[in-house]
Amino acid sequence: MGISEIQGYASFVMTIFLVIMLYGYIMYLYRSEKRGERDYEKYGNIALDDEITSTPVEDKAASQRHKEENK
């Protein structure tokens, strides 16, 4: 088997692998929303409500405080 054949097979295997990853990602997105763990659609509001004084959709400072409290 020459190098170009190995490359060919490698590219095929890689494609299949990445397709599985991508489908896995779709399932992950929908499942975590269904279980109520995440709400992705709320991030759409980041663009609409974007004044510097607006409340962040997810507050960085608050989440850091939260992390430290849980330490």
């Binding site: 659609e41 759409g44 609409l48 974007d50």
Partner: peptide, 15 residues
């Protein structure tokens, strides 16, 4: 931002 409408599907945008 211009239309005042949030992205139709944020999940689709990620995907």
């Amino acid at each position: 931002k211009e239309s005042g409408q949030a992205i139709y599907s944020y999940k689709l945008s990620l995907l």
